[in-house]
Nucleic acid binder design. Structure first.
Length: 766
DNA sequence: GAGTTTGAAACT
DNA sequence: CAGTTTCAAACTC
């Protein structure tokens, strides 16, 4: 179980008002299971690796719901896409689907409310005032845009200009529904533009409301999986919450209802069968001018009340799929396809998700939008992120989303309240971007999907992003040697690999291989870098100060690089070496192994820990030339250097990764992806894998031990991490989804996300 | 861009 | 589990 417990028992510093609010607490207290799932979904890898995910969840429905939610979001985003207006006949399908989804969303929400309160049948939903939902739908994208829109901006998100609440909301939303955003972005780069337009136009006030609504809805979605009771509790808490935002509760309630009420039944229905699905409506949506600010406000909600859950779901999945390699589901999906019965509407109880996806995929492939059609699959998202990160803001945007996605579920689960954190995370994302000097801001408009290989290539070099591009010659991209594979993403165009099997076409092979590898090492696809929470309760105060903010799960084994080059996974991951490392002559700028806090050792020295090698050397009074020797002596000299995590932590953020300009983000970060990510994302996620997770990280950190899987528990104490071992006897630290390669960037933030195990082991049986 | 170095992953 | 080989990224030129 485990994975993440949203519960933050200890929050060192309130990131936001929200956190303090009862609501936040409530959310945190929610069952850990849900978040995990979310995470899995979000992350490329996680989902892949866990065949046993279901075990975590009590019922498949839950999963379905969640996914459904994402899809819906996704759809919303899509609504704003230009495609709707597109003249292209091919798009009709897409548009239709989108429209349907949006309508559905609305419809569902409405229905849910009705049902929830009055027990009215689902269909009654039409009665309800759609306004909010619609608005909400649209708003979401905006919000994201809002926050994420300016990756370039400094630490300060755009939203900074708006009321805090708004920004928070946005942030929260983003975190909560990263998938949706991501998917939308990915699916249609064009859509981003529209979104941007919307964003620009919408009024702050409205945005605020919407944001909250979105936030709530997202949160509710997360919670939905929980029992209705929980939802109620949450609701109550929420209402009690001091939060000034008006209508928040209302929105939340609605959302909650929606989710609870809509257990999927609708999704299962065939589109045609669904009385609510109306082509005409679809058209309306299509016609909508994405650029309009407030569709919700202006538009008649009723128009949108088209519900086609199936499509919505499929859309959702679609978005997810692309980003992540969902090995587990691949098989199922494939089966569905083969069945032929799967006209899309057909629902397979066992894997509703898949079913929907299939449906979705079919219609979309034909789409004129190249971006959509390219890889039916999975993993694209992360790749896309990586690819584009450098080139465009849009990419950044996506990255953000993706990162969120990776951690997303968990994150969202944790805290709706963490708006601030979200903002921060956003900022972080921006920061990451910033890390790479080469990262030129490109207009979101740019369609990354269409980027030429050259561009991608270019990105490769400069990109700090986690894009995974491999150059495998012999491994067929089916071994961990392959960064793409390791990150849980399919290889894509930018890859220069040969004989690549890491493609959707070979998903069965990929899946099988993955399983094989996981059987050998369950943590093989887990994020390599684990960000441990700051304070380790077990450790003394000193230790708590020294959170080895992040450590490589297995530790490195560097012999010649002194952990000063990217050969070193620790260094590459932007983390200091730990006791787990067997490195020789460690000079890791992010933290020397020697400096790694030992229990009991307190050391002041850490404070001095040099951010960069030079500094470190100086501080230590060691001449670089002598460093080697010195390093060896470090243990003796600084045995206690245990230190200082604190100093390290904070100092690190300031430090820029040496490889920032050219370097890719650490693989582990991707994990997002996927594997990284992602519980990740992909992405983290590749990260893009996912990096935005930072904000989530914090939450994870404080999770009580009981709720945290043992694996994760290690994170609490640096020392513990060391103890951890993989089944293979390898030292494995709790997986973490770090999207961010460069902890340094995140200075001062408690972003440490304790990794969420990507593998099944996390499940209850664990 | 080719060649070298490096260390993780895989293999024995 | 240790040692060796394979591999591809990182790095250098």
């Amino acid at each position: 179980m485990a994975m993440d417990t949203p519960e933050k028992t200890q929050i060192t510093s309130p990131l936001s008002k929200f956190e303090d609010s009862p609501v936040f607490n409530y959310i945190n207290s929610l069952s850990p299971i849900k978040p995990v799932k979310s995470i899995n979904i979000a992350q490329t890898f996680h989902s892949l690796s866990f065949a046993s995910l279901p075990s975590v969840f009590t019922s498949p429905h839950v999963n379905s719901h969640k996914e459904t939610r994402f899809l819906k979001r996704h759809n919303y985003v899509d609504l704003s896409k230009p495609e709707f207006s597109s003249e292209n006949g091919n798009e009709v399908c897409n548009d239709e689907g989108l429209a349907v989804d949006a309508a559905q969303l609305y419809d569902n929400s409405t229905e849910l409310q009705e049902n929830f309160d009055s027990g009215v049948s689902i269909r009654d939903g039409s009665v309800e005032p759609p306004g909010e939902h619609l608005k909400f739908t649209i708003e979401l994208p905006r919000t994201l845009k809002y926050d994420c829109g300016s990756p370039d901006s400094d630490q300060t998100p755009r939203c900074g200009t708006q009321a805090d609440i708004v920004s928070k909301s946005a942030g929260t939303i983003a975190s909560l529904a990263p998938l949706t955003n991501v998917a939308s972005h990915k699916d249609s780069p064009e859509g981003q533009v529209h979104l941007a337009g919307l964003y620009k136009t919408d009024s702050k006030k409205e945005a605020t409301e919407c944001d909250w609504e979105n936030l709530i809805s997202d949160a509710s979605d997360l919670f939905i999986f929980n029992s209705p009771i929980d939802a109620d509790g949450f609701k109550e808490l929420f209402q009690k919450s001091p939060n000034p935002v008006v209508g928040f509760c209302t929105s939340f309630n609605e959302v909650r209802k929606m989710q609870i009420v809509n257990p999927f039944g609708p999704g299962e229905q065939n589109e045609k069968e669904d009385p609510f699905t109306q082509p005409g409506e679809t058209i309306e949506l299509t016609q909508m001018d994405p650029t309009h600010d407030n569709l919700a406000a202006n538009e008649d909600p009723d128009k949108y009340i088209i519900s086609n859950p199936s499509k919505a779901v499929s859309n959702l999945h679609r978005g997810m799929r692309r980003r992540c390699l969902d090995f587990e589901k691949v098989g199922a999906r494939r089966k569905n396809i083969e069945d032929g019965s799967s006209s899309g509407s057909v629902v397979v109880q066992s894997d509703e998700k898949i079913t929907y996806e299939n449906t979705q995929l079919v219609p979309f492939k034909p789409s004129s939008d190249s971006s959509r059609c390219i890889l039916p699959g999975i993993g694209l998202h992360l790749n896309a992120l990586a690819i584009n990160a450098k080139d465009s803001k849009k990419i950044k945007h996506e990255t953000f989303s993706s990162s969120v996605t990776l951690s997303g579920s968990a994150a969202s689960f944790h805290s709706p309240t963490s708006g601030q954190e979200l903002d921060e995370s956003l900022t972080l994302v921006s920061a990451e971007r910033d890390m790479d000097p080469n990262d030129n801001v490109v207009p979101f408009v740019e369609d990354f999907s269409q980027t030429s290989p050259k561009k991608k290539r270019r990105r490769l070099e400069g990109e700090a992003e986690a894009c995974k591009r491999c150059n495998c010659k012999k491994s067929k991209c089916l071994k961990l040697y392959c960064e793409c594979f390791a990150a849980g993403v399919y290889c894509i165009e930018p890859c220069a690999c040969q004989d690549c099997f890491n493609k959707p076409i070979h998903e069965d092979t990929v899946l099988a291989t993955r399983k094989q590898i996981e059987s050998r090492n369950p943590l093989a696809f887990a994020p390599k870098v684990i960000r441990s929470s700051e304070p380790a309760p077990e450790i003394g105060d000193e230790s708590s100060k020294t959170p080895a903010s992040a450590r490589h799960k297995r530790g490195c084994n560097c012999k010649k690089s002194s952990c000063l080059k990217k050969y070193c996974e620790c260094y590459q991951g932007g983390v200091g070496c730990s006791l787990n490392c067997r490195c020789e002559g460690c000079k890791n700028a992010f933290g020397r192994k020697d400096d790694f806090p030992n229990l009991g050792s307190a050391s002041v020295e850490m404070e001095d820990e040099p951010e960069d090698e030079t500094e470190a050397s100086e501080k230590n009074g060691v001449d670089k030339t002598l460093q080697k020797t010195e390093i060896q002596n470090n243990d003796e000299h600084h045995p206690h250097s245990a230190l200082p995590t604190t100093p390290l932590r904070f100092s690190r953020p300031l430090v820029q990764l040496p490889f920032s300009s050219k370097g890719k983000p650490p693989r582990s970060f991707l994990g997002v992806g996927s594997s990284s990510g992602l519980y990740t994302g992909q992405r983290y996620g590749k990260q893009n894998f996912l990096r935005p997770q930072w904000k989530f990280e914090k939450q994870f950190q404080n999770v009580p031990d009981d709720e945290i899987p043992e694996i994760l528990r290690e994170n609490h104490s640096p020392s513990s991490g060391i103890k951890t071992s993989s089944p293979n006897s390898k030292r494995v630290s709790p997986p973490q989804s770090n999207l961010e390669p460069s902890p340094g960037r995140r200075s001062g933030r408690k972003l440490i996300l304790q990794s969420i195990p990507s593998f099944p082991s996390l499940t209850p049986h664990h």
